[in-house]
Design a binder for these strands. Structure first.
Lengths: 196, 196
DNA sequence: GTCTATATTGCGATAGAC
DNA sequence: GTCTATCGCAATATAGAC
């Protein structure tokens, strides 16, 4: 604890997160995690109470970051277009900061929600939803966004499109997450069509 | 076999698909499937060679239907806007016809791709991708779609948004999959903004 | 076609030496 | 903090009676 606060813990969590994301939580064994780290499976239980304990830490950190960023977006008042863009940017940034956790959430929410321990995943999902809804409905109310499309539908389409970028997007030097964010916002707000 | 060609098989596959979709393939046990059907787990092996055998049948039927529909869309030549719409409709229809399989694919592709048996999932994914790409690039080439957005990015955003509707959309009398398809197409092509 | 019964393997987790 | 060793259990799958 003195000079090595939790380096080993972090290493374990990193390996575990990668395995959980790639193979699924249920299909990943504690022995595989231990192998990756270079220790024996029993030794993991000095650091964590259980496999689910590892998942818990990974997901908690992810969701706290996510919620913080989403609250900041709501707190900053600007025009509707900019607010949608800020939500897109916040989503992409948190996914970039926690890529494994984001993928675990995408793949394994249903599975994890079977454990009472992970009930908080539901709350986080609802907060994300409410944030999107608020931004969209505000835009409609102000006349900036079309009123003929249901906000609940719109929120799902945009949210999922952005979220799932974790499965395919890897930033490069000439196409960064800023570029992707701009393109997402532009597609959602302006559409694909040229002439009108 | 005479008058009961495969009713029981179908019942088993139905229960299995629902469980796989809700809890994940790896986390679903053959005992749970057997319980659901009202037989003992050993009896399942009279109908299927293994748990993966069941997944295989579920996913094969889904992907064949999907590929057939996507090929039909490509075969029918119309304007780019209509073609994008047709892809959206085809996606939503196949998801409606195989809701469990669609969800299994979303949640468990990575897991399933670990088995050689499921290598065909990769091919199907690529065919879907290529179909979207062809339609989008055609639209750009014809000047109907904006050329400043990369087709590969666009395809992913639209495809994932439509695909993931399987997680939240349940058709009702006054909001059917036709309505959802219209709204998807309208959002993607016209955008959310009112004034320009 | 389903049952009983069980083989076999691999899992999560623990106890205690070092 | 990691190892050795292992417990207890649940998983997939099989064999053979009915």
């Amino acid at each position: 604890m003195a000079r090595d606060p939790g380096v080993r813990r972090e290493a374990i969590l990193g390996s575990a997160a990668a395995l959980f994301a790639n193979k699924g939580v249920a299909a990943t064994t504690v022995r595989q995690i231990a192998d990756e780290v270079g220790i024996l499976s029993g030794s993991l239980y000095h650091h964590f109470d259980s496999k689910e304990g590892m998942v818990d830490e990974i997901m908690s950190a992810y969701l706290e970051d996510l919620q913080t960023r989403f609250r900041h977006v709501l707190a900053r008042a600007t025009d509707p277009r900019q607010r949608v863009h800020n939500l897109v940017v916040a989503s992409l940034e948190v996914v970039e900061a926690h890529p494994h956790a984001a993928e675990i959430y995408q793949n394994d929410v249903n599975y994890l929600l079977q454990f009472e321990r992970f009930a908080y995943l539901k709350n986080a999902g609802e907060e994300v939803r409410n944030t999107w809804l608020q931004v969209i409905e505000e835009g409609i109310a102000q006349g900036a966004f079309r009123g003929d499309l249901d906000a609940k539908i719109l929120h799902r389409l945009m949210r999922d499109a952005v979220w799932l970028s974790v499965r395919w997007f890897t930033p490069s030097a000439d196409y960064t997450i800023t570029h992707l964010a701009d393109d997402c916002t532009s597609l959602f707000l302006d559409g694909l069509t040229t002439a009108r």
